[in-house]
């Protein structure tokens, strides 16, 4: 019964489906998001290149699993210039 939730804790098929969806959905195409199963739902964490991509990930997962509680801990990667260099003698 892959993909069904029905109030039970998410199983590893749900985790696998979400990982595949995040990688293969052209609107997401993220391979760096980790899906962690908890008793009361899923936690998504990782980092993406823009706030829009983070929102799209959450929207897609919620759309596919509307009854599944999802916690997001996805950050947007900083793009500041480096403050130090690495010397390699």
């Amino acid at each position: 019964m892959t993909g069904q939730h029905g109030g039970a804790p998410p199983d590893e098929y749900v985790e696998a489906e979400i990982q595949s969806m995040l990688a293969e959905d052209p609107d997401v195409a993220e391979q760096g998001i980790t899906v962690v199963r908890r008793e009361r739902g899923l936690v998504l964490y990782g980092e993406v290149e823009s706030p829009h991509r983070r929102e799209e990930i959450l929207r897609r997962v919620a759309e596919r699993f509307p009854d599944l509680p999802i916690t997001s801990d996805i950050g947007v990667i900083r793009t500041q210039a480096p403050s130090q260099v690495e010397e390699l003698p």
Binding site: G46, I77, R78, T79, Q80, A81, P82, E86, P89
Partner: peptide, 16 residues
């Protein structure tokens, strides 16, 4: 990889 270095780029000085 950008998610690893968490800045726009890293800089390496090589010389010896």
């Amino acid at each position: 990889a950008h998610p690893v270095i968490k800045q726009a780029y890293s800089i390496f000085h090589l010389g010896d």
